[in-house]
Design a protein around this nucleic acid. Structure first.
Lengths: 202, 202
DNA sequence: TTGACAACTGAACATTTGTTCAGTAAAATT
DNA sequence: AATTTTACTGAACAAATGTTCAGTTGTCAA
């Protein structure tokens, strides 16, 4: 018998399921199983949810890896009504900020192959507006220029400083009067990456 | 026969495995299976990895939900460095940081019904680490408390200040010596919302 | 040198989880 | 009114995945 026909339409129920998967992932950092979705909606058969997932996949909302547990990839098909109003300073037309919202999240694009996230500890960069507890995105591939804020490895320690190159000298500048400039000479030194984003939660 | 004894030590191999799980999750937003870990390290038996995971659990580095696919929770107890690696996850029970990676984006959760994004202009909040050009997320529904940083409407102007309430007086404090405290008396005044996130692009 | 442990192999077993098939009822569409 | 589609139930099957058991080898410390 031919497979049951499934249309691409994003029905109310399917949106509910899509939302639930997003929220579950947000909370547990993991994709729910089909049976967990069933349980959440009080459904008794996995096939109900399974068909919804197939429909969501056909509609391009998600991607399912066959026969793999918890293997749904949520696609980014940002629609215009999901974009948050950016008001105030930003003029229309002007290339704004690479920030888009997806469902109930605000997202910044980054290269996951070369980026990672660090939590800042300490106040050596306080005058650059980087506080202890802030989250920074570090890109290990982006070219690093003079005056960039970088994450470096110094004598086995990871530090966050501003890179200053002048007259063949390399220095790491803290942005806090209580800290000293670090001059790179024979020390073991490596730039891990350039800071590309900062995110702070209040 | 008694179960094989497993000590808590974080050996080199176990740290490699822990690192791999973190990176996998950062990249795919998902936990790898034991067999995927085996494959990555070129191992032929799942039990090798399984014992390492059990050891990591005993050491308090991870938490494993029995008999569940891809159900490792990475605990957040790495210290010592200035900086710690953040895994895109929220630990069960205790939410650490609501930041998750999804595909090639880094996302923070927010209520799109009640939030909007503003671009900061001016340096009146510089000592709070908020610089001109930063993007802030403002939630109009969240309860506003004393000492919160808020966006307020004052005589038709939108301002970003810290709300300070004391002895029946309401004040808006800038965080910059060059600006004056604003005392709210008979002025037209309205709190638009509380600042929940700050995002800066470098 | 003996014992404890790390770090595996190999094979099986148990459980979870994804998938398919057959059917029902209500709502929407034609 | 007939057809299509949504939205399910219920049962079974198959694949993926977690778990256990029995053994091997090398290293390191007592």
């Amino acid at each position: 018998m031919a497979a049951r026909k499934v249309l691409n339409m994003l029905t109310k129920r399917r949106k509910e399921i899509l939302d639930f998967i997003q929220k579950y992932k947000l909370r547990y950092g993991n994709i729910p199983t089909i049976r967990e979705i069933c349980e959440h909606f009080g459904l008794k058969s996995t096939n109900g949810v399974y068909e919804h997932l197939k429909a969501l996949e056909k509609g391009g909302y998600i991607e399912i890896t066959a026969n793999k547990a918890r293997n749904i990839i949520i696609k980014d098909n940002f629609e215009k009504n999901n974009i948050l109003p950016i008001i105030g300073e930003v003029a229309a037309g002007e290339p704004i900020y690479p920030i888009v919202t997806e469902g109930d999240k605000l997202a910044v694009p980054l290269n996951t192959d070369s980026s990672f996230v660090l939590k800042v500890k300490g106040d050596s960069m306080i005058n650059a507006g980087i506080k202890s507890g802030d989250m920074i995105v570090v890109d290990t591939q982006k070219p690093v220029n003079n005056k960039d804020i970088v994450v470096a490895l110094l004598d086995g320690e990871v530090t966050l400083k501003r890179l200053v190159i002048s007259d063949n000298k390399i220095e790491l500048h803290p942005e806090n009067e209580n800290y000293n400039i670090i001059k790179i000479d024979k020390k073991e030194f490596k730039i891990i990456g350039k800071v590309t984003f900062l995110i702070r939660k209040f």
